[in-house]
Design a protein around this nucleic acid. Sequence first.
DNA 1: CCACGACTTTTCCGACTTGGAAACTTTGCC
DNA 2: GGCAAAGTTTCCAAGTCGGAAAAGTCGTGG
Lengths: 206, 206
Amino acid sequence: MTSDVGLRERKKRATRTALSRAAWSLMVERGIDAVTAESVAATVDVSPRTFRNYFSSREEAILDAMVQRAGALVEALRARPADEPVWDSLAHVLPDAIMNVLGEREADVAALVRASADRPALLAQQVTAFARVERRVAEVIAERTGADLDRDLAPHLLAAVPAAALRAVATMWADGATGATLPDLVRASIAQLRDGLPLGRAAPVT
Amino acid sequence: MTSDVGLRERKKRATRTALSRAAWSLMVERGIDAVTAESVAATVDVSPRTFRNYFSSREEAILDAMVQRAGALVEALRARPADEPVWDSLAHVLPDAIMNVLGEREADVAALVRASADRPALLAQQVTAFARVERRVAEVIAERTGADLDRDLAPHLLAAVPAAALRAVATMWADGATGATLPDLVRASIAQLRDGLPLGRAAPVT
DNA sequence: CCACGACTTTTCCGACTTGGAAACTTTGCC
DNA sequence: GGCAAAGTTTCCAAGTCGGAAAAGTCGTGG
């Protein structure tokens, strides 16, 4: 996996991930305002200019690691049996994925949600990152169902809707005390979506 | 409606909407890069600093008018009969709403989608604006179904999912040639959502 | 092993953006 | 008219961004 790459390439990757991890840690531990080109560069011991060579903004740095992890989600989805109904595949993959993607620990997720709330640029970066993942999910679904991405609505909806649900769940979980764990909420939301959403009375979660 | 407000207030609102409309027009006609504090201020004939007094970013200015219009959507939803199933209300309101909210003419919607594609900040502003609308929609739904916004997932999902669908539909419509009109696509997407989304093969739109 | 080319990092710096402070203008009201 | 409140403008300092070239590091062929 890390074969056939020389010292130079390894160093480059090392600094990149070091910068991203440092940016993430700074956000979690000292808040989004503590994340600057200067501070991040300082903790990794490179010049601020080097930081900007790798990332065009603090937000990009913070989310870089997350984007990498999101790739795993797409792969997990692709790895599901080809004849499995799409909703089953999603139900299988998403509950675990949310933790892997948004952050290892729940505190991380909360920090991210909070930081995104008062830093539009971070939200922007997140949205575009998610949009890219969504696109790839739509492609996987289209492949599997034989749909045409340019003409059929379904794959787009099947990608966009769970993404929206994840966002809604994460937000609700972050600022309310629902008592439930994040993966459980994700499971519940997927179940509701699969059934066409409650039409009359709302179904409680716990 | 515009009663009991003095000259001062009217002028303030006038410049605000003038700035927003100017920003929007500049985006549609000359692209997002032509929208700067300077250019917008110039077309309205105020100082750039005044522009920044009203809006903290070009993106905020561009979308301000849209946010106002989105209020109408919420009101339309609230005006539906209280005992009508939520999906029916949404199906009733959304197809017309998308044009009113995203832009009067289809070219405007296309311009917005295109601009959002290569200007993350605009997408972000859109998302946060939508999030606020979404929140209000969720409140209306919660009122109507007797759900608790802090504990129940359903109202959040019922607000977030159609929003995501609108976004998906607008994107697809903007960069593909689907042949269908935007409101028709919205209707189709709502129908699919209501039925729990196609599980196996994807349903074509036309 | 060393020397040269390719690539990365750093320093320096000018262009641009942001928002505070104070002067100036307009509006509301007596 | 004249004074207070609110809005607008000018001026400017601090911060951010990215280009250009010097300095340092790595890969490779002699």
